[in-house]
């Protein structure tokens, strides 16, 4: 089962649910499952078929490179984190 951590600011939609387990093989499926259970949550995360620009998705600590196509493993953790801009030297 994939474990999805619901960000604080989306917990009103989930009625306070903070964590959610589901079966999925990629991120798109994770978000579909979420939206089935908590209708409307997808609109907060996805825009024009992509993860919203200010948002990033970390799967087992790695920021997803493939967007919604990113694979999730059997026991993966999924976190929605702010997208961090690059600094520099």
């Amino acid at each position: 089962m994939v474990t999805v951590f619901i960000p604080t600011m989306l917990q009103p939609i989930t009625g306070g649910v903070k964590q959610f387990d589901c079966e999925a093989t990629n991120l798109r499926q994770v978000i579909e499952r979420l939206d089935q259970l908590f209708p409307g949550i997808k609109d907060k995360l996805v825009e024009d078929g992509r993860i919203k620009p200010n948002l990033a998705v970390a799967i087992d600590g790695e920021v997803a490179r493939m967007g919604l196509l990113e694979k999730v493993g059997e026991n993966s953790e999924v976190h929605f984190v702010p997208a961090i801009g690059g600094g520099a030297c």
Binding site: P7, T8, M9, L10, D43, K44, L45, K52, N54, L55
Partner: peptide
Amino acid sequence: LGETSQTASNVAAHARY
């Protein structure tokens, strides 16, 4: 995080963790 205020504001974004 996807929610947008109803009135215009100088606060462009708010995040909570």
